[in-house]
Amino acid sequence: MDQVMTIAKTHHAEKVVRIIVRIGPLSGIEPLLLESAFSISCAGTIAEEAEFLTETLPIRVLCNNCGVESEAAINNLLCQNCGGYNTKLLSGDELILARVELENAD
């Protein structure tokens, strides 16, 4: 909320219309729980009526052995091509404030 408010202030916004957060399953954050926490924390602020949207990102890994990029499951991050465990996570552990839509004074 602090981050949203700072941005709103920087842009001299009157109202926060929409907040978009990107969440990866490996971040340990549950989108539904975050949504309900959000509605409590923005009560009484200029984001009170804001729509809170979460985008779930896929879990993708890049294999350091065979170089193939594949989609993985939360508890199986092995390369789906060669089965190697020497993989790098490309996406899936994020908790990022992606975008904020603001209404400016006319």
Partner: peptide
């Protein structure tokens, strides 16, 4: 990539900031 067209006085701000940054 992130620039979006404004509509009806609404400004979209791309942030891409870690929510746990604090």
């Amino acid at each position: 990539v992130m620039a979006e067209k404004p509509k009806n006085g609404v400004t979209t701000v791309s942030v891409l900031q870690n929510l746990l940054s604090k």
